[in-house]
Amino acid sequence: MAVTVRVPGPLRRLTAGAPEVQIEGATVAEALRNLDGRFPGFADRLYEPDGQLKQFVNVYRNDEDVRFASGLETALEDGDDLSIVPAVAGGR
């Protein structure tokens, strides 16, 4: 399963500036693990020590917040987009 991960500005240092990278993974968790394998540092930035996503990290699979699906266990399909977006925005 190859998916496109969209990397937000604050984390592009980890991908040498690349805004998008192709990653393999059958679930969100697996894709993020493989992302960290290829670009070490992601796990640190995205996860609490207890393995939960950090408070300010939102992950979207094809525009859907994975917290509204099965969280980190959400299944991925070939060609999916996975976006990592900081939560800090808003105010209408």
Binding site: P8, G9, P10, L11, R13, R45, K54, Q55, F56, V57, P86, A87, V88, A89
Partner: peptide, 11 residues
């Protein structure tokens, strides 16, 4: 013009 901490994504 940045609003997110690179370390923890905090404001």
């Amino acid at each position: 013009p940045v609003h997110v901490c690179e370390q923890c994504f905090g404001p």
